[in-house]
Design a protein around this nucleic acid. Structure first.
Lengths: 353, 353
DNA sequence: CTGAAAGCGCTTACAG
DNA sequence: CTGAAAGCGCTTACAG
């Protein structure tokens, strides 16, 4: 037979005090006469009692002292940890958790887990890497504060995004300024799967698995290209899932199907690094033969070879802001973080001008 | 006045059923007659009731469905995310969490947070990056399963470690095989702070802030060196906190105080990469002028220049094993993971033999 | 298949 | 400063 672990009422009984007083001994000891406190502590020690069980306390309207993060697009936690982009973002989130004395619970983006967690995770709020309609409904029901990333989900839900259209415009304009006229775009496929190729043609909004942010970027590229008389419909688009080895597989498709492109506009640094790797493998020189510009300024964009020209977004700050919004429980905040062009070594003047 | 959010008893009342039946409607719907279930669901919908509050459920002996990870040595969560070593370890932990349908809560190693979390975190168990005596006592009191990493904390506490002595021996032997005779050691300083330098001399066990694993490694280096008639006491030791920029600062000290060493034995890849960077900066050629061997085979050991020769430990597997031990609640498991020498390009024959 | 009761472990007003 | 009571929101035997 198992010896039931002692609880507060046992301690109270042993010390011959009331439950309430025993509770106070642990939570507001300054209210007790020292001798009584001693008595209770002694009883607790004898019973092997370790202080109030957090589960009990929780029910009395307590905070869990933790916030949850759920990555976008069915991404597993392990994948999230290995994403340079998310790592930096999560650093910002973690900093704020630390400042607020809270823990960070990382939840799988896999569909079943996500649904369960949104209903049941013991957290005081959520940061959603993205959100489909159904999740928004569930999380709203949870009656805890939450914020969604990179998506304006309406006036009543907190969001923090970036100036995606502006960033893309800057990237494409940079290429135009360098004399490029033959483009290809690498968009982000949001679920694990083979890259999908879209030949030029009139294909308004037909990307298969993209988020609003991806369309904003497309619009931004289009804005810039239009100034040079180039239609977005004339440039091929590859949608590619960023984690390795998908990025590399996609890059091979890219070079095979768009061999004449000299300027590659990539919506994610992780994908861009895949392009860089595959270019090297295929003997294509970057930036001599082909220029590539990424997006995000993930930490490995600076150590790649060549270092990646990219559109920087303030990832750590973004994480901090998102976390602070959740902790503040503030409502109706819609923040847009600024972006900027970082010119490094993966872009150059078109050589065969 | 705030509209109190509906609870299960409200739903039961509205549907004119008992509390227990209402509970069953949500948790074991197959027990209810369909019509009754409908009735209850309708009532719930009308009241805006979203399903049982996890806090209530928890008290009835429920699981939290999460395990906690606390990094060693007061490391913040943000720092943990940025450590290549921990990232890989945590990937393994996360994989298992995913398989078990649980979340991962990452807790700060900062002293006050750690103590609070050990008492109060809503988790079903802990993985401790390391543990001081006091933490072990607290966590044991929590009566949840836990495992400590890289530390044998006695027969009654789960642990998973590595063959540290063996690994260090392999590293030093490798250097000896390459003809090296002038050594320097870089040990791990376990708390943020300036590197500390130990000149050669009889200084048994005087490292200032090390863990048992660090001493094992020291012994391992000693084992190999002894076979060549070299005393550990004759080799200088630098203790250095691995995160940037401490690693770099420490490496400068190293090169200044041990300019004649041709073989650097480093107990952590993160530190070893710092040595590589500083060597480059100072015009010291690796491996032509100096050979360096790391420890861990962190993910960036392969992409460094030159790629790092190191002692690999199975980080993902280690994370998986630790997580599984916690989930199984198994007791008295003491696992030692194997290590192996990975020869890459940071070590070479001593040139001025 | 459904209801009434007890209880999970604790905290918080409220009296005194 | 201390005690008695009610309640946090739910689940689980146990009767019927």
């Amino acid at each position: 037979m198992v010896k039931r672990t002692a609880k507060l009422s046992d301690v109270a009984a042993a010390a011959k005090v009331s439950l309430g007083t025993a509770s106070n001994a642990f939570n507001r000891p300054e209210l007790l006469r020292p001798e009584l406190r001693d008595l209770i502590e002694k009883a607790a020690r004898k019973l092997g009692y370790l202080g109030p069980d957090p589960k009990g306390r929780l029910l009395m309207g307590g905070k869990t002292n933790a916030i949850g993060f759920i990555p976008a697009g069915e991404m597993s936690v392990a994948t999230a940890f290995n994403s340079p982009f998310l790592r930096k973002f999560l650093s910002g989130v973690a900093e704020v958790c630390e400042e607020r004395g809270a823990s960070l619970v990382v939840i799988s983006g896999a569909e079943e887990r996500k649904d369960w967690a949104i209903r049941n995770a013991l957290v005081d709020g959520f940061i959603l890497g993205h959100a489909e309609e159904v999740n928004l409904i569930s999380v709203r029901r949870r009656k805890v504060p939450f914020v969604v990333m990179d998506l304006d989900a309406g006036p009543d839900v907190n969001s923090v995004g970036i100036a995606g259209r502006e960033g893309a415009r800057l990237a494409a304009q940079h290429m135009l300024d360098l004399g490029h006229r033959k483009f290809a775009i690498v968009s982000v496929l949001r679920k694990r799967g083979d890259a999908v190729w879209h030949s030029p043609g009139d294909r308004e909004r037909q990307l298969s698995a993209s988020y609003p942010l991806d369309y904003e970027k497309l619009d931004g590229y289009g804005d810039a290209l239009a100034t040079a008389g180039i239609s977005l419909n004339s440039v091929p688009i590859l949608e590619c899932y960023p984690p390795s080895p998908w990025a590399e597989a996609g890059a091979h498709v890219l070079f095979e199907r768009a061999p004449d492109a000299t300027a590659i506009l990539v919506m994610s640094d992780t994908n861009a690094l895949g392009v860089l790797n595959v270019a090297r493998e295929r003997g294509i020189k970057v930036p001599d033969d082909v220029s590539v510009v990424g997006f995000d300024d993930a930490p490995d964009a600076i150590t790649s070879s060549p270092p990646l020209t990219t559109i920087a977004q303030p990832l750590v700050e973004k994480g901090r802001l998102a976390a602070n919004i959740v902790f503040d429980g503030f409502h109706s905040r819609h923040e847009i973080m600024p972006v900027k062009l970082i010119i490094r070594a993966s872009t150059a003047f078109r050589s065969n001008a």
